[in-house]
Design a protein around this nucleic acid. Structure first.
Lengths: 338, 338
DNA sequence: GGAATTGTTGGGATCGTTCCCAGTCGTACC
DNA sequence: GGTACGACTGGGAACGATCCCAACAATTCC
């Protein structure tokens, strides 16, 4: 029996401690069948005692895999960071990846230059796959990654035909929750500020609103459109008020636009929720900080992130794994604006 | 002359194309002296033409460096993400690291379990160094990293005696800017909501307020204390009003507390900036979304992040590099609250 | 003119894994 | 009792870089 060194740095040292060959240790490490239970146990114990951890670089060199996955944030000005969506995304992904010893490498693609560099980088196999996080459904990067045959998954439904796995929240159902809630609160004339209609989320949230109203036997209130972002909600709100149509409930397709709407309503001397009850979408930080705090629709982002990461790992393990999409149910968070 | 392959995957292929040995190619890659200008040029051209990129794993294996640095976010609940501070930090670090081909690996240490796993991970040399981002000056992790002799740098002045390089913003000067601005706006009775006095930033911002008032020959207004976080500002604001002392200017040591203060002022029927002009600190997203938008003190975070990253790279290159600290000047961002 | 020096170059060992291949041992079968 | 087969094991060749060392050529010096 060899005296165990304080820490074993190589597979050879572990082998010596366990009294087997390095091949056997390697087999145990990789869960390869064909190792006797005795040997397996001896190796396990040796690894345990020496605190051995395999050398990533050496392993990488022969397996041609890096043990890293890229977290690509493709968003101008990294607006994304100020969204709890991103924080939860990272937390969910980390949770999955940490016990496997896989690295989560942060990659920004804020402008064209960065995007080109990033692409060259990805092409050179620096990561085994890519978690793509973006709110812009029209982003060209996912399509390129698919064409490059780099395993990639998306954090939202892609626009157009694209064979890539993704997770998303059920926006139609989310808008439905918002309408149901407003109706429960006694509102009957319900308006909406919709998102851009060239994005899946924009379309779905409008459709969900329409369908839910129909289900309740209610006539749709006035509609105005924004672009999901701060600023566009104010214009849309002014438009709604300018129609002259009365309404006592309002579903806004994003929290940021809802914040604008709240401000405009106040400027016009309308009380929230007294005169108009308002529901947003996203459950962003801004929602809690709004005055009054905003009732909104939350996505189970952390759970979605875990699912997304597992999907990517599957795909890395088997590049011909079938394309999957998982759509998660949203949840209504009631606050003081309704 | 060998026909150049579309892409060279190994140093040997590049060598063949350039008509030299792999040793010479390696020398060119690593900027080692002792290569004739002719050979150097031939190699450069071969690399260019073949689009060769060295294999990280192979290089890592022999140099014993990973080419990755960890971005450790040690913050419960990743509150950090919702701060533009973090976004700018990442952008600055990325900017430095990308052209060098170094990976930025994201690591969360939200709870004790994660912290333990992270530590084990770092100990095993998975990264060459650590960029430590946290708002909690009392975080125990930096001290541990220093003890482990892992190159690390901090994004804020550490509390207590700790031989670690850091960058920080000049909080004393920042508070001074806030006071100067209030005085310019004609305010003479200036109160403050200070941060926790067991944190460097809390102490400095209070001191800056005091010193600036003295410089203007003004008597300090009332003081109340919060913990920088949301919620604590409301209590502090109530305290200030309860003193009965009149004031027409208010410096709050963080934007989040300032938001609370604005709400409480409004509840008491006080107009901002009419009755009280308010200045925050941090220039967080919340500042722009406040009503009225908050005048605040901004840190040059991106520049700080670049400096911090360069410091870390220095330290990785030479573990005995001297400990440095750089303190950056803040900037006042005037909005509607003053 | 020979030795020493300098500048440049190439060959080969090495890093720590994985994985292929050959070998050993025990058991079952004819 | 010999052969075949299965389960298990160990040795050694990769993987693609770095870097040490020896070889070589051209120059300088005595």
């Amino acid at each position: 029996m060899v005296r165990p060194p304080a820490t074993a740095r190589t597979i050879k040292e572990v082998a010596a401690v366990a009294g087997v060959s390095k091949s056997t240790v390697s087999r145990v490490l990789n869960d390869t069948p064909g190792v006797s239970p005795t040997a397996r146990e001896r190796v396990r114990s040796a690894i345990e005692r020496t605190g051995y951890q395999p050398n990533r670089a050496a392993r990488s060199l022969v397996t041609r895999a890096t043990g890293s996955i890229g977290l690509v944030v493709s968003e101008p000005h990294a607006r994304m960071f100020s969204d709890p969506f991103f924080a939860s995304m990272v937390r969910g992904a980390t949770e999955v990846v940490r016990p496997l010893g896989i690295h989560l490498v942060l990659m920004l693609a804020e402008d064209q230059r960065a995007r080109d560099q990033l692409l060259a980088y990805l092409r050179h196999g620096h990561v085994d796959g890519v978690l793509f996080v973006s709110t812009h459904a029209a982003d060209p990067l996912p399509r390129i990654l698919v064409a490059e045959r780099l395993p990639a998954v998306l954090s939202a439904r892609p626009v157009g035909r694209l064979s890539i796995s993704y997770v998303d929240v059920d926006s139609v159902a989310g808008a439905g929750l918002a309408v149901d809630h407003l109706v429960e609160r006694g509102r009957r004339r319900i308006a909406t500020i919709a998102g851009p209609q060239d994005m899946a989320a924009g379309q779905d949230r409008l459709r969900g609103w329409e369908e839910a109203l129909a289900a309740h036997g209610l006539v749709p209130g006035p509609i105005a459109y924004g672009d999901f972002d701060r600023g566009s909600g104010a214009r849309a709100m002014e438009e709604l008020l300018a129609t002259g149509e009365a309404f006592d409930g309002l579903f806004v397709a994003s929290d940021l636009m809802a914040l604008d709407a709240l401000a405009v309503l106040r400027e016009h001397g309308l009380r929230v929720p007294g005169d108009v009850a308002v529901v947003g979408f996203d459950d962003s930080v801004a929602a809690t900080q709004a005055r009054p705090p905003l009732t909104t629709v939350r996505q189970p982002v952390e759970e979605m992130a875990k699912a997304l990461t597992l999907t990517l790992l599957d795909r890395i393990g088997d590049p011909d794994a079938p394309i999957t999409s998982r759509v998660f149910p949203p949840k209504l968070i009631a606050r003081a604006s309704t």
